[in-house]
Amino acid sequence: MNWEAVVFWAMATLVLVPAFAIVFSRNIVHMAFWLLGTLMGVSGLYLLLGADFLGMTQIFVYIGGINVLLLFGIMLTRSEPVYVRRLAKRPKLAPGLIIGAFTAFTLVSALLGAGWRNVPGEPTETAGILGAFLLSEYILPFEIISVLLLVVLIGAAYIARRGSREGAE
């Protein structure tokens, strides 16, 4: 086994083990900390592919931003550890299986249809090409996503403000 395979399997374990831990853990704060491992593993896979910029963005946005905010939200609303309770008496198997199968089908077909190919040589530049593509060929999706995020931001602020104003009255 060469070193790339070793690193790949190490990173894949780092993605999968915490992912299962998130599902089976009952403490919601532990889940948020387990997520850290998964996100780091994905970032490691990007780095292995030579996509430094993408890997670092993963850390910057998901761990430094979203994961911290997730924990922040949990801690701001409850002071004690929050345990997840099972709502239904007996877990409903059939709907779960259908949804799971559908998601798996979508993901696998997307993976198979992606048209993977080997890029000759080693990456010479990690950020520049990405930036040029985002501002030329993919400018429309890029702008649509940014507008969408802005709308989400304004919507969230509006909902939060409305709640607090009603509470004050």
Binding site: M56, I59, G64
Partner: peptide
């Protein structure tokens, strides 16, 4: 910048 943001967590 990215690695520094790990400190928060």
């Amino acid at each position: 910048a990215a690695v520094g943001s790990l400190e928060a967590i």
